[in-house]
């Protein structure tokens, strides 16, 4: 069964958006969306990275795959019957990629996961200038601020934004996610207000069990 993500990766690499969408729609008939995000789309993108490492594709191919994946996610998002306003919870999440960070596919899936759980979501996209993020946060006053980074060069930026967020008077929960959270030990950033979310599975656990459980499981 683990060839499914490779199949999807090939649709992405060929620039075949229709093929990718049809493939995903067929999968959606059998599996829940969360499974698709965590176990098909994410591995498909990792597989693309692996092909680059194997010297089989170039960075240009990777960009194409990302663009197609982005498109497919947007399309899925638009077509999913989101929780109607009436049933929406009053929780708000704001998500963005830190300054200079260009990786955003994971973040987009996180945005969708929040929406699926009835949250109101502001997804601000990748590489959000710091000042801009501060203004938006003051205006929207989210309960959760999710920041994402992939590369270790962003650690300094993360430190800076965290310092700023610590001063917000309504004490939002800060989530740090992205490849950086998965590959590096970010424990030093964790506090009452800040949690590290390694992947979509972590996020799912948080939705199901709340924060304490998540910490207990990992510590």
């Amino acid at each position: 069964m683990d060839v499914q993500h490779e199949q999807l990766a090939h649709y992405f690499l060929q620039g075949d958006d229709q093929g990718a969408i049809e493939f995903i729609k067929t999968m959606l008939e059998k599996y829940p969306r969360a499974y698709l995000y965590g176990d098909i789309i994410t591995p498909a993108m990792y597989y693309v990275g692996e092909l680059w490492e194997r010297n089989e594709i170039s960075v240009a191919d990777e960009h194409l795959a990302t663009a197609i994946c982005d498109f497919v996610l947007s399309k899925l998002d638009a077509e999913s019957g989101h929780v109607s306003r009436k049933q929406q919870k009053n929780f708000k999440a704001m998500l963005f990629g830190v300054e200079e960070e260009q990786h955003y596919i994971g973040l987009k899936m996180v945005a969708d996961t929040f929406k699926e759980h009835g949250w109101r979501v502001r997804y601000l996209g990748p590489a959000l200038p710091m000042e801009h993020s501060f203004t938006q946060i003051e205006k929207y006053r989210p309960d959760v601020i999710g920041i994402s980074a992939a590369l270790p060069y962003r650690l300094k930026t993360i430190k800076m934004v965290l310092e700023h967020f610590a001063e917000l008077d309504w004490n939002p929960l800060i989530m740090i996610g992205g490849r950086l959270a998965k590959e590096y030990n970010l424990k030093e950033f964790e506090s009452d207000q800040v949690m590290v979310v390694k992947d979509l599975g972590d996020l799912k656990r948080w939705f199901n069990e709340g924060r304490e459980e998540t910490i207990n499981e990992t510590s």
Binding site: V59, A60, H63, A67, D70, Q102, R122, Y123, L124, G125, P126, A127
Partner: peptide, 27 residues
């Protein structure tokens, strides 16, 4: 890599972020 490529990549990034802004405003 050829600067042309990075130029195109940058333009694409800008276009994407503009689309995202528009999307955001619509929301």
């Amino acid at each position: 890599k050829d600067e042309q490529l990075s130029k195109i990549t940058k333009t694409m990034d800008q276009l994407r972020s503009r689309l995202n802004d528009t999307n955001f405003q619509l929301l």
